[in-house]
């Protein structure tokens, strides 16, 4: 199995340099997970887990390694968040529950409002928004999320509108 890392470099996936791939891609995966989850320790854990999965079961081709890493880490993140939500529900019966994020690190109140606005989006909307912000094309967003490429525009429009509504309100409140 071969893949093109850079157009001119061809590397076999049989003995790829794990460390090299890690160094080149870890910051991106960590950032992505931080945007989705906002919880640093969990983001670090899951970024690590993503690369362990890469090591254990690399994709057949590395032509779209970025897309693979983002897809795997996104799935891990939502699995984790769903688990946390259930856990919290179990632990505090009767109390209102929602995803809660580790917000201590958000020193800027504006960042905190952005975080909260993101929290209110469902998985599909949140992921699309983050992916677009990170510079992925509609094609790539469709590939990562499994959404039909034709629906990406609509999904983004709705997600941004929802985000805007919450964020604007909170921001006005703060500023």
């Amino acid at each position: 199995m071969v893949f093109k890392k850079h157009p001119e470099v061809v590397i076999s996936t049989d003995n790829f340099d794990f460390k090299e791939l890690f160094d080149a891609n870890y910051p991106m995966v960590f950032r992505h997970l931080m945007l989705i989850m906002g919880e640093r320790a969990a983001a670090e854990d899951l970024a690590q887990e993503t690369f362990i999965k890469l090591y254990e079961k690399p994709p057949k081709e590395f032509t779209n390694l970025t897309g693979w890493l983002i897809r795997v880490s996104t799935n891990l993140a939502y699995n984790y968040l769903r688990g946390e939500k259930n856990r919290k529900k179990r632990e505090s019966v009767g109390e209102p529950t929602g995803e809660s994020f580790e917000e201590d690190f958000l020193r800027s109140s504006e960042a905190l409002e952005a975080r909260r606005a993101l929290e209110l989006l469902d998985e599909k909307h949140r992921t699309c928004l983050i992916l677009k912000f990170s510079g992925f094309s509609y094609d790539e967003i469709a590939g990562i999320t499994g959404i039909n490429k034709k629906s990406v525009g609509k999904t983004l429009a709705r997600a941004q509108e929802k985000f805007r509504r919450v964020y604007e309100r909170k921001r006005e409140h703060v500023l």
């Binding site: 460390k19 890690f22 160094d23 870890y26 910051p27 960590f30 950032r31 931080m34 945007l35 640093r40 983001a43 670090e44 970024a47 690590q48 690190f105 958000l106 020193r107 800027s108 504006e110 960042a111 409002e113 952005a114 975080r115 606005a117 993101l118 928004l129 983050i130 912000f133 997600a159 941004q160 985000f163 805007r164 964020y167 604007e168």
Partner: peptide, 24 residues
């Protein structure tokens, strides 16, 4: 506005950065 919000958030995240070396 979404870009503004996420940029603010990302700036905060980058400030806290995670060491790739340690993560490795």
């Amino acid at each position: 506005l979404t870009d503004v919000g996420l940029t603010v958030l990302l700036r905060e995240i980058n400030k806290q950065g995670s060491s790739t070396e340690a993560a490795w």
